[in-house]
Amino acid sequence: MAFPLVGSGPGIFMPNSGVLPEFKDVFPYSDFVHWYETVHIPDWLRWKPGAITSAWRYQSVDADRDWPFLVAYKFPNISDLSSPDYITIPLTNPMLPEGGPISKFTHIEAVAGPHIETWRSGSTGDDRGPILVTEEIDPANVTTDKFQEWYRDVYIGEVSAMAGWRRTSRFDNGMGQPRWLALHEFEESSFGPNTTKIAGLLELKRDLSVQV
C-alpha cells in the first residue's frame, strides 16, 4: 500500500520505530539496528531510482524511549511516497526472527510532507547537524496567518540564538495531524538543556499546543 500523502515537491519522510516489548528477547535492539542499517535503508534507497536522494539515521538520547530509532529520507518530490509500487520494498529477510515480516516485531510511526522553508546559520549546505530535535506542531486557537507570523518573526529568532544551532527546516505534514513538522539541528558540542529543550520556548507563547 502507498502512504495517503497530500502534497508534492521536495519533502521528507520520517519513520520512528523500535522493537515491541514482547519481542525484545528474540529480536534485540542491536539486531534491529543492524538489519535496519544494512538491509532496510538500502532497500528504500533502491526502491524507486531517484525518489530518495539522502537518508539520515538518528538515535534518541532518551535511553528509555519506546521507539528510539529515527530515519529521515529526503525526497525531491514527496508525492513519490504515494506511488503504488511502494509495496515492493521487502518486509522479510533472513536476518529477522522467523524471517519476518518486520511489522510483526516492531512499532512504526511516520510523518511526511513537503518542505516549506529553512533557516540556516551561515553556509551549512546539505550537511546535517549531529543533534536533531524534531517538533510536531498543532496551533490552538490561532489563525494560520498569526501562527506563521509568530513562527517566522519570533520563534525562529529564539531558536537560532541557542548555542550551537545550525539549521531549522519546516514541513507541512501531508499525512494529517499534527499540522506542521520542524527539524532543529544543533552541533554536538553544544548539546544540553540550553540547546535542546525547545518545548520551554513554546510553553506560554501564542496559545500553541506543541509536542516535542
Rank of each mutant, 00 (worst) to 15 (best):
S123L: 06
D126T: 07
D127S: 04
D127T: 05
R128V: 01
G129C: 02
G129L: 02
G129F: 02
P130W: 14
I131R: 08
L132Q: 05
L132M: 15
L132E: 08
V133W: 01
V133H: 01
V133R: 04
V133L: 05
V133I: 09
E135R: 10
E136A: 02
E136P: 05
I137M: 07
I137F: 09
D138L: 14
P139C: 06
P139D: 01
A140V: 10
A140R: 04
N141E: 10
N141V: 10
T143E: 14
T143N: 06
T144M: 08
T144Y: 13
T144S: 10
D145I: 10
D145H: 12
D145S: 15
F147V: 06
F147T: 05
E149P: 05
E149M: 06
E149H: 12
W150E: 12
W150L: 07
W150R: 00
Y151P: 03
Y151S: 03
V154S: 11
V154R: 08
Y155V: 01
Y155S: 05
Y155W: 13
I156S: 04
E158W: 15
E158P: 10
S160Q: 14
S160I: 12
S160R: 15
A161R: 15
A161S: 15
M162I: 11
G164T: 13
W165D: 00
W165Q: 02
R167L: 06
R167N: 06
R167S: 09
R167E: 06
T168V: 14
T168R: 09
R170Y: 10
R170H: 09
R170F: 08
R170P: 03
F171M: 03
N173S: 09
N173T: 11
N173K: 12
G174I: 07
M175Y: 10
M175E: 05
G176M: 08
Q177C: 07
Q177K: 07
P178S: 00
P178I: 00
R179G: 10
R179P: 13
R179K: 08
W180A: 06
W180I: 11
L181A: 02
L181G: 01
A182P: 00
A182S: 07
A182F: 05
L183P: 00
H184C: 11
F186S: 04
F186V: 07
E187M: 09
E188W: 15
E188V: 10
S189W: 14
S189K: 13
S190V: 13
F191V: 12
F191A: 10
N194M: 13
N194Y: 15
N194P: 11
T195P: 02
T195W: 08
T195Y: 05
T196N: 04
